[in-house]
Design a protein around this nucleic acid. Structure first.
Length: 414
RNA sequence: GUGAGUGUAGCUCAAUGGUCAGAGCACUGGACUGUGGCUCCAGUGGUUGGGGGUUCGAGUCCCCUCACUCACCCCA
């Protein structure tokens, strides 16, 4: 019987894994200098947590969640995103009593039951960050410049930073009304999906890809023109801070995020080389969620980076650094096999990556394997070497070789 | 959930309905009894995704099914 991984769920293994590790390391380093600390929230939570935060009528909650009942009859869901568990943790453990702001980052798998396509999987990894306790747009700008630095460090170019403000509970209802009245006499020009959106969530008509909908909405009211004065000031200062921090960006008033908890600032980082799923990172402010989860009214903002999308961009844009062993021990014969193994062990104890050949293989094939591994040195041990107490070394990059005492090998590599 | 496309060796791909389904790469060995890359030679590797049908004959045509891919939708 041959088994396959589940649809939309992929293994990650060498050589790709080194790229994943590299991204995770660079991200952790950058987040750390911005004062973010790692947080590890569970992968499964009560279903309710996601329903309440993401929104009952969103697609994620309505049809994309992996939900089951556990043996105790509890409704459980595999997290479809990372913010809700972090907020739950923040509130449950009274982390708002710690000095503000509290800033966290996380990395791990998320799950959504969707039809897989380029850049979209049922299990996908996100690296995300959340900052609690600052209402000022300063932190919004910091977060965006942190993302800019991350992508720069990873060597990514041609990214497009888009920002928007979708207002707050004060001004959004008014904007929604304005949209509804704008579209009320234009319904026949909209696609079937948008006529449904008109009822449920008219803001989503703004990011429909159908041409006729694009035409119909051309003169639709802009969210940025319907902000209350607080939101307008907030957005205005964010834009000027982005100038100050030299984060190139464009304002996209049609950008509507799919999660209900967002307020004010929303943003997306997209790349045209990604295909239909072109967002490599996205996020926004969620000033009401902590309170919604039973905490005090604490503002917050966060984002998530899509690992698979990032990996695919990095794979197509640069060459990978595949890690290589420092030395390869080629052995000829039983005794040499044993001595080589013992030597390998001593080298490894010193933190030197050592590979060893197996006596069944010819020297030629062992050399070939050392070459394929890109080992820096090969040590050759056979009967002659055991008898003389020396072994041969060869540097593969230039072919130079020589002899050293078996007892001096450790020093040779240090 | 809807639509389209593709399934042949580990990978990338050939093969008018007609001998035994091939090539390159990779892997193993040899040429070079103990020295990698380059070259040459050989070997390993296939239920042509699975099932049914048409036919003297199916990798090729038809039907069903499964898987994958892309797009819609949705989103990281």
């Amino acid at each position: 019987m041959k088994y396959n991984a589940l649809k939309g769920i992929h293994d990650i293994y060498p050589p790709d894994i080194s790229l994943w590790q590299h991204i995770e390391k660079v991200a952790a380093d950058i987040f750390t200098v911005f004062g973010f600390q790692e947080i590890r929230a569970p992968i499964i939570e009560s279903t309710d947590i996601f329903v309440r935060s993401i929104g009952e009528t969103t697609d994620i909650v309505e049809k994309e969640m992996y939900t089951f009942t556990d043996k105790g009859g509890r409704r459980i869901t595999l997290r479809p995103e990372g913010t809700a568990p972090v907020v739950r943790c923040y509130v449950e453990n009274y982390l708002y009593n710690l000095p503000s702001p509290q800033k966290y980052f996380y990395a791990g798998p998320m799950f959504r039951y969707e039809r897989p396509q380029a850049g979209r999987f049922r299990q996908f990894f996100q690296i995300g960050a959340e900052a609690f306790g600052v209402a000022e747009p300063k932190i919004d700008a910091e977060i965006l410049s942190m993302l800019k630095l991350l992508f720069e460090r990873l060597g990514l170019r041609e990214l497009c930073f888009q920002v928007n403000s979708i207002g707050c509970e004060q001004c959004r209802p008014g904007y929604r009304k304005a949209l509804v009245s704008f579209f009320s006499d234009k319904l026949e020009g909209l696609c079937p999906d948008c006529t449904r959106r008109y009822e449920l969530n008219p803001l989503r008509i703004l990011d429909c890809k159908v041409d006729s909908c694009k035409r119909v909405r051309q003169d639709a009211p802009r969210v940025t023109e319907h902000l209350c004065s607080d939101c307008e000031n907030h957005f205005g200062s964010l834009l000027s801070l982005l100038e100050l921090l030299e984060v190139p960006h464009s304002i996209n008033p049609d950008m509507v995020r799919g999660l209900d908890y967002y307020t004010r600032t929303t943003f997306e980082v997209t790349c045209e080389h990604l295909g239909a799923q072109n967002a490599v990172a996205a996020g926004g402010r969620y000033d009401r969620l902590v309170q919604e989860f039973g905490g005090p009214p604490i503002p917050a903002i966060g984002f998530a980076v899509g690992m698979e999308r990032l990996v695919s961009l990095l794979k197509s844009s640069g060459e990978q650094n595949i890690p290589a062993p420092r030395t390869f021990i080629a052995v000829l014969g039983e005794d040499a096999g044993k001595q080589g193994l013992a030597l390998a062990n001593r080298l490894r104890e010193q933190g030197i990556w050592t590979e060893i050949g197996y006596t069944g293989n010819s020297l030629k094939s062992q050399m070939r394997r050392a070459d394929r591994l890109s080992a820096e040195y090969v040590l050759i041990i056979g009967d002659e070497e055991i008898a003389s107490g020396n072994c041969k070394w060869k540097k593969l990059s230039d072919g130079s070789q020589g002899e050293i005492a078996l007892s001096g090998v450790l020093a040779f590599f240090q």
